[in-house]
């Protein structure tokens, strides 16, 4: 199998082309969409999938399935034979109930969906803040991912490649984990939490788990670097896990009193829209979150949710 290597996703309007191809192909996609469309609230029934889906429900895995289906199904993002990266937040030595890491069921479901769409290999990893093995184990993510067939890799600072950050204002070059660069589909699946400096940690902030180096430096101008880094790795698909969100003492958390049960899942191909929608869960406006505005201004996506088709369900 020839392995397609995409060091830089920026500049390739893959989703658009894919979208056109699928609508051209016709009936299958239409039929799939027709099944979901009536469920969509506030969106006109249409022949094309939504840009962003917000699904609420009791089962985290079912929410993911419905959200991906609503935006066109996993086949829109994963081709047969693809090497896929599913990048959760596994940063903390916390249990799923503490909401410091991505919900393991969400990760497991994404891995399963990727394989169902024809992925040849699905890799799961994160550069953790706490003890790596404790994070992988206690979060339940390693087990969920392995059970779904994924290869769970330990992060290796020596397996990072220095890559330039195009148009980077604060940082021009940074070491990035090779496996995150060399994949066919990069799926970003963060958990939504509060954060001391960046106010919230959502999709863009989750990129800090694929970088090496002295990453504490990023905090010196976090809004700028988070937006600029989208030029290096722009996820094909962003799924924000908001089944449980951490509303205080993030991102490490630990206190169940700070956790709020939202039972929500957000999925979209637009990394900026994903964060903009998730910010609303915390009652935060886009103006409060510098990284969202900057990323939108740089053309990585849209922060104005009125300009895209949003499906809300549940």
């Amino acid at each position: 199998m020839k392995r397609k290597v995409i060091p830089y996703c920026f500049g390739r309007d893959v989703t658009r082309r894919e979208f056109l191809r699928r609508t051209g192909a016709g009936s299958a996609a239409l039929a799939a969409w027709a099944a979901v469309a009536p469920l969509a609230r506030g969106a006109e029934p249409t022949a094309s999938p939504a840009d962003l889906a917000v699904i609420r429900g009791d089962d985290p895995a079912a929410n993911v399935r419905a959200a991906i289906e609503a935006i066109g199904g996993m086949k829109r993002f994963v081709k047969k034979g693809d090497v896929v990266v599913v990048k959760p937040n596994i940063g903390w030595d916390r249990t799923p109930e503490q909401a410091a890491n991505t919900n393991p069921q969400v990760v497991g479901e994404l891995v399963a969906l990727a394989f169902a769409a024809g992925a040849s290999k699905v890799k799961v990893f994160d550069n953790t803040c706490n003890n790596p093995r404790a994070c992988y184990t206690r979060s339940g993510i390693e087990k969920a991912a392995v059970d779904a067939g994924a290869t769970v890799l330990p992060f290796d600072g020596k397996r990072c490649k220095n890559v330039p950050i195009p148009d980077g204002e604060f940082i021009k070059e940074w070491p990035v984990f090779v496996d995150a660069l060399e994949c066919d589909a990069y799926i970003n699946v963060p958990v939504a939490k509060v954060h001391g400096l960046s106010k919230l940690t959502l999709g863009l902030k989750n990129a800090m788990g694929i970088i090496g180096g002295n990453r504490g430096q990023w905090h010196q101008n976090i809004d700028v670097i988070l937006a600029d880094f989208l030029a290096v790795v722009k996820p094909k698909l962003t799924v924000i896990d908001a089944y449980r969100i951490l509303t205080a003492n993030g991102p490490s958390g630990g206190n169940l009193a700070d956790v709020r049960l939202m039972k929500t899942c957000i999925a979209t191909a637009d990394p900026v829209a994903a964060d903009a929608r998730a910010a609303a869960l915390f009652g935060k406006t886009i103006d409060e979150l510098g990284f969202i505005g900057r990323a939108a201004r740089k053309g990585f996506g849209t922060a104005d949710l009125s300009k895209i088709r949003v499906v809300e369900k549940g």
């Binding site: 803040c129 954060h195 905090h219 010196q220 490490s252």
Partner: peptide, 26 residues
């Protein structure tokens, strides 16, 4: 300390602090 000595934002220590409420506040 970077913010105190240089006027540049940093808060890695606060981010990492595992107690709740955090012993380090921004």
């Amino acid at each position: 300390c970077i913010p105190w000595a240089r006027g540049v934002p940093c808060g890695v220590c606060e981010e990492m602090c595992p107690v709740s409420p955090k012993a380090i506040e921004i």
